[in-house]
């Protein structure tokens, strides 16, 4: 798996998921529907992504199609970095 996806997964695992649930987290699973993150949690992800990947995210871009799975988020980051 490419680096960005792994970085995001590592961040989520270390910050939001406890115990056995770690193994269950897939790259295309919904973070909100599976209860991985809540509304402030999304903000924490935005914070992490800006900090880690040196991009700035507009509030309007914090949408499910950009943020709800690891793969979508990684694709979004790549678009922003271009």
């Amino acid at each position: 798996m490419p680096k960005i996806e792994n970085e995001i997964r590592q961040f989520l695992v270390e910050n939001f998921i406890l115990g056995d649930e770690v193994d269950k987290m897939g790259f295309d699973e919904s973070l909100l529907e599976n209860g991985v993150i809540d509304s402030t949690g999304v903000l924490e992800v935005v914070f992490f992504v800006e900090d880690k990947f040196q991009i700035e995210i507009d509030t309007e871009e914090v949408l499910p199609e950009n943020f709800d799975t690891i793969n979508r988020l990684a694709a979004y980051i790549r678009r922003k970095q271009e």
Binding site: T40, L43, F47, E56, D58, T59, V62
Partner: peptide, 22 residues
């Protein structure tokens, strides 16, 4: 300090300061 810098990038954001709740 990190959160305030995050907020300062979009100072009018209603959402960003909520990270301080963490």
């Amino acid at each position: 300090a990190k959160i305030r810098r995050f907020w300062a990038r979009q100072p009018d954001s209603e959402l960003r300061p909520r990270l301080l709740e963490r």
